[in-house]
Amino acid sequence: MKRPQLIGLAIAATAGLMAFVMVRGMVSKPPVEKTVEIKVKSSDVLVARTDIGLGQITNDSLFRWQSWPEETVTPGFITRTGQPDAMTQLAGSIARAPIMAGEPITQTKLVKAGQGGVLAAILPAGMRAISTKIKEETAVGNLILPNDRVDVILIRRLRNARTGQEDFVSELLFGNVRVLAIGQQIETKEGKKTADSSAATATLELTARQAELLALGNSIGDISLSLRSIADLDVTQGPTAGVDPSSSRETASIRVLRYGTPSRSYGVN
């Protein structure tokens, strides 16, 4: 092979090798990562360090400050700039509702000690707590737990207009009633599937007028609780009204007058 041909071949081989190295370097070269810092305005918000149970008395170890985007901070949040001593100030408060770890603390979720007991703390404004006697056969075999929803049924005797005898009748007093406590248990303990079988009372959340009617119902008959399905729960709606036990079914009645003196009434329903 002639010298010029050898030189040309060497140049071509060298160029090919350089092109191969360059292409390989371009293919295997890792992409350049660019880090872009975006500064977001934030505020330190008071949150729960761990889960806080309903009715639990808090201390400062249950809280911590967490950076929170300023645009999502609502007026109800407690911020370090607004209340720098909030942890100390809220120590000893009672939780009005369960609070999950990392959840922002608000004034409405806690009530300060001295403003009422645990039960008073978890009662919504305008509502009353009233207890009724229960036993296994009137409380779903003691399977009702705090925060369940029940219907309240009154069983009493009314005079039969046709026979003059007294018959047992059942009436729905209230529906969708929240159970505040079974005995002295106000919160379902983790892993506990039933309430205290020895509990003799159920404490219900009712309006002031409904509390009066339940007290009346307890005096004129027997109260039973019917457990509602979780599929029917409506926590946004309070207890619904049923029959008013103060108004007897014997509304259409005959009053017998004997010598101008009224005697007892007999129903004609």
Score class of each variant (00 low, 15 high):
161 A>Q: 04
14 T>N: 05
146 P>D: 06
195 A>M: 14
72 T>Y: 15
101 A>K: 11
260 G>W: 00
77 F>C: 10
181 A>V: 12
81 T>V: 04
176 N>D: 08
90 L>F: 04
22 M>I: 13
184 Q>T: 11
84 P>M: 01
140 V>Y: 10
198 S>N: 11
26 M>Y: 10
162 R>C: 06
257 L>P: 00
111 V>S: 15
116 G>P: 04
33 E>F: 01
50 T>G: 09
53 G>Q: 13
120 A>E: 15
108 T>N: 13
166 E>T: 09
43 S>D: 10
90 L>I: 08
232 D>Y: 01
267 G>D: 00
207 T>A: 13
97 A>R: 15
66 Q>R: 13
41 K>F: 02
259 Y>L: 08
76 G>S: 15
160 N>V: 01
228 R>I: 09
34 K>V: 12
258 R>T: 06
135 K>E: 12
95 A>F: 01
164 G>A: 00
25 G>D: 01
40 V>P: 00
41 K>D: 07
186 I>S: 15
134 I>S: 01
29 K>Q: 10
145 L>N: 13
115 Q>N: 15
136 E>K: 13
241 A>Q: 14
163 T>V: 04
226 S>C: 06
27 V>N: 00
109 K>E: 08
38 I>R: 00
216 L>K: 11
17 L>F: 09
93 S>V: 07
213 L>P: 07
52 I>V: 11
222 D>H: 12
155 I>A: 15
235 V>A: 13
217 G>P: 03
7 I>P: 02
18 M>T: 10
66 Q>D: 10
24 R>S: 14
40 V>A: 02
146 P>F: 02
246 S>E: 06
4 P>T: 02
80 R>N: 10
192 K>C: 09
256 V>H: 01
37 E>R: 04
93 S>A: 07
57 I>M: 02
166 E>G: 07
169 V>F: 04
46 L>R: 05
179 V>F: 07
116 G>N: 02
151 D>Y: 04
156 R>C: 08
194 T>D: 00
268 V>Q: 02
60 D>S: 14
145 L>G: 04
227 L>S: 07
115 Q>Y: 11
199 A>E: 02
191 G>E: 11
39 K>P: 07
268 V>A: 03
135 K>A: 12
111 V>G: 15
225 L>R: 06
137 E>A: 11
163 T>E: 00
157 R>K: 15
234 D>T: 10
207 T>H: 03
157 R>S: 14
14 T>E: 02
236 T>S: 13
130 I>T: 15
43 S>E: 08
126 G>S: 03
31 P>G: 01
80 R>E: 03
103 E>T: 14
260 G>D: 01
11 I>C: 04
223 I>Q: 06
132 T>L: 04
204 L>F: 06
92 G>L: 02
46 L>S: 06
200 A>L: 13
86 A>M: 01
145 L>A: 08
198 S>Y: 07
234 D>P: 04
56 Q>V: 13
180 L>N: 06
186 I>V: 13
136 E>N: 14
52 I>Q: 04
52 I>G: 03
235 V>M: 11
24 R>D: 10
244 D>F: 09
122 I>P: 12
197 S>H: 05
159 R>L: 03
140 V>F: 14
140 V>R: 14
91 A>I: 07
54 L>I: 11
73 V>W: 00
268 V>D: 02
91 A>W: 03
48 A>N: 08
152 V>C: 05
125 A>L: 12
183 G>D: 01
92 G>A: 02
66 Q>N: 09
110 L>S: 08
93 S>Q: 06
29 K>W: 05
